[in-house]
Each structure stands twice: as C-alpha cells, then as structure tokens.
Amino acid sequence: MAQARATTTDEVLAAAARVFRDKGYRNATLDDIAAEAGVSKPTLYRYSEGKQWLLDSIARKVRETLRDRVDEHTHLTGIDALRATIVAAARSTQDLRVYYEAMSVNVLELSAEDEAERREWMKEATLRTAQTLQQCREEGSMHLPGKPAIYANLVQSVLRGIFTWYDPDGTTTPEELAQHMIDLFALDVREDIAASPSHSP
C-alpha cells in the first residue's frame, strides 16, 4: 500500500528503500517507486536522478547519518566514546531501519563509485574504533590483551549487522545494548581454556 504523497527527497528515498527491500533492485522499476511515493514518474525525477542514484543515495544516507552521530561525540575518549559509537549505531538502526533492510539485500547493486566510498567508510569506522579501544586499554577501563584492530573488526561487524536482530521497539534501550556489548569485554575467561585455542567442550 502506497504511503502519503512524498514531498521531499528523504521521503522519496524512503519509498525507494521500501520498494528495493520488497522487490529487489533489479526487479524494481521507477514506476514502482513513483507509485510507492504517491507521485507521478515525471515528479519522481524532480527528486532523483534515476534508480541507481536512489540506491546509492540510500547507502549514503546510512553512512552520513551514522558518521554525523559519531562525530557528535569526538570530544569523548575511551569507554565513553565506545559507548557513544554503539548507541549511535542502535539509534540509526531505529531511525533508518528500512534503509538498512534495503541495503542488506541490494549491496551488490551499488555503483562502483559508491561501493568504493562504502569500503573507505568501513575502514575509517574500524580505524576509529581501534583507536577508541586502544584508549580504553590505556585508561584501564578494559582489559584487552590482543590487538585493538581485531577487536575493532569484531565490534564493527556486530554494529553493521545490528539491524538484523536488534528490535528498536523492544525492551532493550540503545544505552542498555551498548552496556551489554561492553560487558562482553569485561568477561573473565578461565586460564586453562584461554591458553588452549584447540580446546573444545
């Protein structure tokens, strides 16, 4: 069922995201998107440059929103910065859920240029997380015996897939979710198990 008539680019992007999520990028048409947005096809072109532009813009919206929210906390360091990063990811999932859902099934359809930007953004996010975890280790708020880069990749992998399992309408707040993730780093592991990578239960 079509939504109310779109009157902004963001509303057109949201309509496109719903269509891409439900039909897939290759099967979706501009007519489908115009109908979902409640506008005519000529009107659709006032807000977009075409189907590829819409998909790339959806991916860009996700990146820029998350980057802006993380940048709000650049004055924080260590454990506070890590917490803010996780909360930002959870809130972005909440606010842009349909965008995440659209991208999850259409990421291979991004233009070469936008795919390159996406990969650069992922590297940037991982590097920033590694720096934050290093600060956590230096300030003594976390015991991290391994390489910060490995932990950072683990954290970012979880955050990129958070929309698949985190229910923003559930009982767990973004702040509580962040604390759960931080608690994982604080878990003590039995020395006999930690010293034996080949150990199996």
Rank of each mutant, 00 (worst) to 15 (best):
I150S: 09
D169S: 14
P174I: 05
G140R: 07
T171V: 11
Y151V: 04
E175H: 06
S157Q: 06
M142K: 02
R137G: 11
T171A: 13
H143D: 15
Q156M: 13
Y151R: 00
G140Y: 10
P174H: 02
G146V: 01
H180L: 11
P145N: 03
G140H: 10
H180F: 10
L154G: 12
P148R: 03
Y151D: 14
C136L: 06
L154D: 09
E139H: 13
F163L: 00
D169N: 15
I150G: 04
K147P: 13
P148E: 08
L144Q: 08
E175Y: 02
G161P: 02
L159T: 07
Q134D: 14
S157T: 10
Q156S: 01
S141N: 05
E175Q: 14
P148L: 06
T164S: 10
L144I: 15
H180C: 02
N153E: 15
E138A: 11
D169V: 01
E176V: 03
T172V: 15
I162G: 02
Y151T: 09
L159H: 10
W165E: 02
P145R: 03
I162P: 03
V155N: 05
M142C: 05
E175S: 12
E176F: 01
I162M: 12
Q135L: 10
P168A: 14
Y151K: 01
G146F: 01
H180E: 12
D167A: 07
P174F: 03
A152D: 10
L154Q: 09
V155I: 13
P145H: 04
R160M: 12
P168R: 05
Y151I: 00
P148Y: 05
I150H: 12
L154T: 11
G170T: 09
A149M: 13
A178H: 02
A178W: 04
E175D: 15
P148T: 06
T164L: 15
K147V: 11
E139F: 10
P148D: 07
R137Q: 14
H143S: 14
C136M: 08
D167F: 02
G146S: 11
H180D: 12
L154V: 12
C136R: 03
P174A: 03
G146K: 02
Y166N: 06
P148V: 09
S157F: 09
T164Y: 02
P168Q: 05
H143W: 10
E138V: 04
L154P: 00
F163S: 12
E139L: 15
L159Y: 06
I150F: 08
T173K: 06
T172Q: 13
P148N: 05
F163I: 00
L144W: 07
A152M: 07
P174R: 02
S157D: 09
G161C: 04
L177E: 07
G146Y: 01
Q135D: 14
L144Y: 08
G146I: 01
G170V: 09
I162K: 00
D167E: 08
T164N: 05
L159S: 06
A149Y: 03
